Amino acid sequence: MGFTLSVEKNDTLFFGEDIISFIHIVLNAPSNSRAKSTNNYITMNVVGKLHADDGNGSNSETIKLFQWAQIPAENEEAYRSVTAEVIASGKCFRKITFNQAFVVDYSERYTDTKGIGEFAMTIRQKIDKIDEVEVDGGLPIGDGASAAVAAAAAGTSGDFVSTGSQAGGAGGVMNNIGRAAVTAALNKVDPSGTAAIVAQAGLDKK
């Protein structure tokens, strides 16, 4: 199973399976709800790899995610369309689109492994637009995801986006820093820790 992520506003960012290592979606209601709540919120947690380009150490296009997180709330650029795809057996098992998404939290961790780090971000749909979240499944994979799947099958790394590329790669198993980022993100939306336990068990199977 693999993951892709696209972010759209005035331009489009696409991150393939070589970058995105974990996606978790949570639909929450207030803990004291005794009937269907009108105060639900839906959150997407994303963890991915950072690759420094060989030679000059420059960041990949993931820096644009960092810059998006910095945009103040009063700026319309703070809200973007985000689509996550879960790829399995050459098909899109699940496709989730937040059409009014904003960044709640963003973090980056850097390691002493040459050219490799990880980022974690928490994205949420604007609360009055919850009913506009689109969920689908069993679809043919999109063009960007198709390229990423083809690159993975060929044993090569795909581009971060159509205009950027990455050199080098991380191992297939998420390291301890990535696990810490996942746990921290999930505990924000599920303080009981249940979601984090389930997610970590899934990662251990990779």
Rank of each mutant, 00 (worst) to 15 (best):
S81F: 06
K129M: 14
K64F: 14
I63T: 03
A120M: 08
I123H: 00
K91G: 00
E108T: 08
N99W: 01
E61K: 08
G117T: 11
N56A: 11
D105Y: 07
F102C: 06
N99L: 02
F66E: 10
T97C: 07
V82W: 04
I87S: 04
A84D: 04
E77G: 02
I96N: 06
K64S: 11
T111W: 06
T97A: 05
E77F: 06
T83M: 09
E76R: 07
S60V: 04
Y79K: 09
T113V: 15
A88G: 02
V82F: 05
A69L: 02
I116A: 03
F119L: 12
I63Y: 01
N99Y: 04
T113W: 07
E77D: 15
Q70H: 10
N59P: 09
N59S: 14
Y106T: 04
N75G: 03
S89E: 15
V103Y: 06
I116M: 05
E118K: 07
Q67A: 10
T97K: 12
Y79G: 07
V103E: 02
T83C: 09
F102D: 05
E108Y: 00
I123T: 02
W68D: 02
S58L: 12
N75S: 13
R109I: 09
S81W: 05
I71G: 01
T83N: 08
E77Y: 05
G115V: 11
T122E: 10
A78F: 03
A101W: 03
K91R: 12
S89H: 13
S107R: 10
I71T: 13
Q100F: 10
V104N: 06
N99G: 00
S60A: 13
Q70N: 13
T111C: 05
I63E: 04
R109W: 01
L65H: 07
I87C: 05
G55Q: 08
K91Q: 11
S58W: 09
A101L: 04
F66R: 11
C92Q: 10
Y79L: 15
T113K: 15
N56T: 09
A84F: 03
F66V: 01
I71K: 05
M121N: 03
V103C: 15
R124T: 11
I116K: 12
A101M: 04
Y106I: 06
A120I: 00
Q100H: 14
E61C: 14
Q70I: 05
S60L: 04
E77R: 11
G57K: 06
I123M: 04
G55I: 06
S60H: 05
I127N: 12
S89P: 00
R94V: 09
D128C: 01
R109S: 12
E85Q: 15
K114M: 11
I63K: 07
I63F: 01
G55A: 09
K95Q: 15
S58N: 11
A84E: 08
G57A: 11
D105G: 00
T111M: 12
T111S: 14
E76P: 08
E77A: 13
K91M: 13
E118D: 02
L65Q: 06
I71R: 04
S89R: 11
G115T: 08
A78L: 01
K64D: 12
I130W: 03
Q67H: 13
I87M: 09
K114N: 10
D128M: 00
R94N: 08
N59A: 14
R124H: 00
G117K: 07
N59D: 13
V86R: 07
G57V: 08
Y110M: 08
P72E: 14
G117M: 07
E61Q: 09
K126D: 08
I87K: 03
P72C: 08
